[in-house]
């Protein structure tokens, strides 16, 4: 760090460096980096792009061989996703077509020989996903933060063993315990409840969040809290005013990871929920239309499913990218 007293006048800048001339090798390296980044981005984006395209395809277009890149976009997929429909006979179709009070949605269904009988349960499933993933993430990050802080700052008898125990809950393949859990959940009466899934996801994510957050909190020098303690704050206040703001990066990263896990979880949701608490992942593939796979509807459902996570991650990107502490303690 510059050892310059504020009283000393700063030297005038009497030199300059040309920045417009970059060596050709540096330019080549830069070019290669850009190409690699673009290539990786394309590879990553192809499935998402394809899914988005499929969501707007009509049924024949979605399964066309060779795949169609240019097609007539339609909202058929979204209509199938958000409605329950009944197949009509030829006479019924003819009868329906005479009606004049049909909305464009009804007409879209009718064009495929169907009549809408009511809204689908997709919005409810999505809402369940938001409740279960959101609440379990809040709990696993909150509890994880408190435990991580305790493990990091206090001398706890058997801390190493405890941490290993916490980690060991992740060592078993989850599918192994689905049947026992199913039986237990039924016996406890928490089968197919939000509470049951929230509990499970919280416990599952807790090991992860404790370990991840402990790493972040270990990085925060103790002196900050000690300074706050002698400055007249209690430990809890010091935690809130000093540790919390500085571990925002870690909290954001942990939140995103926990949320994505809880959001995407399929196997447990399939086994432990049926109707009331069923989340989106096991329900999207079940939108299998009558007589054939509704690829467009599934793609549309996946697209809607993607959006909340993208929003959260985007909202937290500022913290994800920022350094933990920028050099107030010299090491």
């Amino acid at each position: 760090m510059a050892a310059q007293s504020p009283a000393a006048p700063r030297l005038p800048v009497n030199f300059s460096t040309r920045v417009d001339e970059v060596s050709s090798r540096a330019r080549l390296a830069r070019f290669i980096r850009v190409v690699v980044v673009i290539a990786v981005a394309i590879i990553m984006l192809i499935p998402v792009t394809w899914m988005t395209l499929t969501a707007f395809k009509s049924r024949p277009d979605a399964v066309a061989v060779p795949p169609k890149i240019f097609f007539q976009p339609t909202l058929e997929g979204f209509v199938s996703l958000l409605t329950d429909r009944r197949q009509l006979t030829t006479e019924q179709i003819a009868e329906e077509q005479k009606r004049t009070d049909l909305t464009w949605i009804d007409q879209l269904a009718l064009s495929r020989g169907q009549v809408i009988t009511g809204p689908s349960d997709y919005p409810q499933r999505l809402l369940n996903s938001i409740i279960v993933a959101g609440v379990s993430t809040v709990f696993s990050v909150g509890l994880g933060l408190l435990s991580a802080y305790s493990f990091s700052r206090f001398s706890i008898a058997g801390a190493g063993d405890l941490l290993f125990f916490i980690l060991s809950t992740r060592m078993l393949p989850p599918v192994v315990v689905t049947i026992p859990l199913f039986l237990m959940y039924r016996a406890l009466g928490i089968y197919d409840t939000h509470f049951g899934l929230i509990l499970l996801y919280t416990v599952f994510n807790l090991s992860f969040s404790v370990w991840l957050l402990k790493g972040f909190i270990d990085e925060i020098p103790r002196e900050y809290e000690e300074a706050a303690l002698v400055d007249g704050y209690t430990r809890l206040q010091a935690f809130r005013k000093i540790v919390l703001p500085q571990s925002l990066t870690g909290i954001a990263a942990t939140t995103v990871f926990c949320l994505i896990f809880a959001w995407n979880e399929y196997a447990f949701a399939l086994m432990l929920s049926a109707d009331r608490a069923r989340t989106a992942p096991p329900s999207i593939p079940s939108v299998l239309g009558t007589g054939g796979i509704e690829s467009a509807a599934i793609a549309a459902g996946s697209l809607g499913f993607l959006i909340p996570v993208v929003i959260v991650t985007f909202a937290l990107r500022k913290y994800l990218l920022r350094g933990v502490t920028f050099g107030a303690i010299r090491q």
Binding site: Y224, E226, A227, L229, V230, D231, Y233, T325, G327, I329
Partner: peptide, 28 residues
């Protein structure tokens, strides 16, 4: 408790709160 002793402590590595400005640090 340290906060009940009315004692100020200056740390070797200063321990200024990095997320607060100098003014906020002094006001703390």
């Amino acid at each position: 408790h340290p906060s009940d002793r009315d004692i100020a402590f200056v740390f070797q590595f200063f321990a200024l709160y990095p997320h607060l400005s100098a003014r906020q640090n002094i006001a703390f």
